[in-house]
Design a protein around this nucleic acid. Structure first.
Lengths: 125, 125
DNA sequence: ATCGATATGTACTTAGAGTATCTATGTCAA
DNA sequence: TTGACATAGATACTCTAAGTACATATCGAT
């Protein structure tokens, strides 16, 4: 087919907003955690279907740590290989605060948009 | 500075969800329109600050037309240079419907996320 | 000692956003 | 009648971030 997949750019297609960073931050606010566990935790928030591939999580965590939003330390005790346990910094708390603000506003914009759609349809469009 | 800008990936920073495609589709559902006018129209929805650069709009419109979501025709009458006027196809209406569905769900997820944050904070986090 | 599960990490590719620039046409005024 | 300006559309280039695949290390069980 020369024609591109019609679903490119549509909602369930590929590039919908996944909110991985704020999900990690909120999970870490609840309790310090590590990569593999965070993969499970953030699936609860519902922004991603299935599980986020580990590579992405570790990339995010590394990035967050470089920016002082989280800090980590190795936890060697316990079963299995050592875990790198992350926790929020106070800077991270602030960043999460910004995210929450943005997300509340975004939710509001989305609701307004959906309302406008229904008004348009309802008015005989 | 070797350290990357701390705001990378944060909400007001760069890569927040802009919903340009559904904005174009809803604007076109309200009435057929053309590039320059659409730039004005979609700013009302509030997903982008300021105005979207023309290049992006035309890229989107071309993409939408390639996928049969909109159709266009030249309107030579009227003042100024000719306008390429777009309108939704029935397929486009369906796509907008999917977007609306997704956006309502996304709004719901965002609200839940924000609620969870406040529960965490409120519970003494 | 080797196999699988857990856990973390790196490398490669590509899609999409951002940015800058370019062309064309009509209007208006000098 | 031409030259500047506003409108309108289009394209090319760059760069970031997401997606994907693969690689490494450790521990426990058999």
């Amino acid at each position: 087919m020369s024609r591109k997949n019609i679903s490119s750019g549509q909602p369930g297609a590929k590039k919908t907003e996944r909110y991985i960073q704020p999900s990690l931050l909120l999970a870490l606010k609840k309790k310090p955690s590590y990569g593999y566990e965070l993969i499970q935790e953030i699936s609860q928030f519902g922004f991603v279907e299935g599980q986020v591939p580990p590579g992405m999580i570790y990339r995010h965590l590394r990035d967050l740590e470089e920016n002082g939003i989280v800090v980590s330390e190795w936890e060697t005790g316990g079963a299995g290989p050592a875990k790198r346990v992350y926790q929020l910094t106070s800077e991270g708390e602030a960043v999460l605060g910004f995210w929450i603000d943005y997300m509340r506003q975004q939710a509001e914009r989305l609701r307004r948009f959906v309302d406008m759609y229904h008004e348009t349809v309802g008015a005989g469009g």
